[in-house]
Design a protein around this nucleic acid. Structure first.
Lengths: 195, 195
DNA sequence: CGATGCATACCGTCTGGTCGGTATGAACCT
DNA sequence: AGGTTCATACCGACCAGACGGTATGCATCG
């Protein structure tokens, strides 16, 4: 009955601790204590500490991918699509702040082959976003005087930095901040000589 | 004669290793081996591993502060000042990419009191930048419909993310990227109804 | 000769991971 | 239905090694 529950609880605790203290600085003991289980139980579900970290990455990557797929499937007008995508992605990033922290900070702690897999799947995500913008450029809605990789990085930087300043207890709510950051980004992205 | 040299070499190696593998995942052994000295030598100059990390932070904070002081001292027209400041800060961040990586990632590894000091000095830096923008807002050059903390975060996010995508071997040089990111930021920052 | 600048050997602690064992319960045989 | 078997879920004591840090010793220099 606790079958899934234990693994889930361990993952939950691991995310919180990794985000707060970093992967290398968090011991397996701490994790299992926080999860209220024993080390034996944990090692029954995960092969190693590395395995545990990868499970977190896998979850996030899957979530990210399905999320973007859905957005693209919605399709429609390009500029509006990009705007909706940005707001959506930012809002989701806020919902998963601790996961995001781990996601961005702990790549180099993974074993080499897993690092490669994560990088590969991340690139897929990146490319999908890049394609959205390229489409907008083709329609003349987005500026083309700045290399697309820079435009992409300029957006992802906002996601990445969220955990360093955004607080759920802060004055602005999730959706407000998502809208504000999107507004800033789209303003800089729009073609100067658009309609 | 090697007085300063040893401590310097150790710091250099530490920055490179901390940036590449993280603080907690880097052993003192690795650092001294990379620096070509012994552990005894290192502990002659630094009290602890924590001390070593703090020395890196101290260097960066000092550099940052003097840098911003200089920019502000230059003064002049607000919008141009902000633009120059942005380009300058981004370019400098590129020059110190590994240091920046450590600077952003390893705060929570410092001992509590030192963490506070770093946070305090960081806030000073932040506030100075915020004041620059406030001035621009007062002159009607910058938008006021979005909270200033969000505007600030939107800028610092670019700095923070640099180490995740910028490569000195990439197609664009340091100054070009600095100019492009500044252009993007200032476009989103400018008041919609400016001259 | 004392102080500085190191080298070397060593220590206690904590880490990720292992391993023998047990409780539980479903499946199967008779 | 009662007994046997077997897999799964889990426990908790334990280990080898790596870690940060220290103590001691020695060479050099002023």
């Amino acid at each position: 009955m606790k079958d899934v529950n234990v693994a889930d609880e361990v993952l939950r605790s691991a995310v919180a601790l990794f985000a707060a203290q970093g992967y290398a600085n968090t011991s397996v003991q701490q994790i299992v204590e926080a999860a209220g289980v024993t080390k034996g139980a944990m090692y029954h579900y995960f092969e190693s500490k590395d395995d545990l970290l990868f499970a977190i990455y896998d979850r996030m990557l899957t979530l990210q991918q399905s999320h973007l797929d859905e957005i693209i499937a919605r399709g429609g007008g390009t500029v509006d699509t990009v705007q909706a995508a940005c707001e959506d992605v930012i809002a989701t990033s806020i919902d998963f702040l601790p996961e995001g922290t781990v996601f961005f900070r702990s790549l180099h702690m993974l074993s080499a082959p897993r690092q490669q897999e994560v990088t590969r799947r991340r690139r897929v995500y990146n490319d999908a976003f890049s394609a959205l913008i390229e489409q907008g450029q083709a329609e003349g809605a987005f500026r083309t005087d700045i290399p697309r990789p820079v435009l992409i990085a300029h957006f992802f930087s906002d996601l990445h930095y969220l955990s360093h300043w955004f607080s759920p207890e802060g004055p602005e709510g999730r959706d407000v901040v998502a809208a504000q950051l999107t507004e800033l980004y789209l303003t800089s992205l729009r073609s100067p000589d658009a309609d």
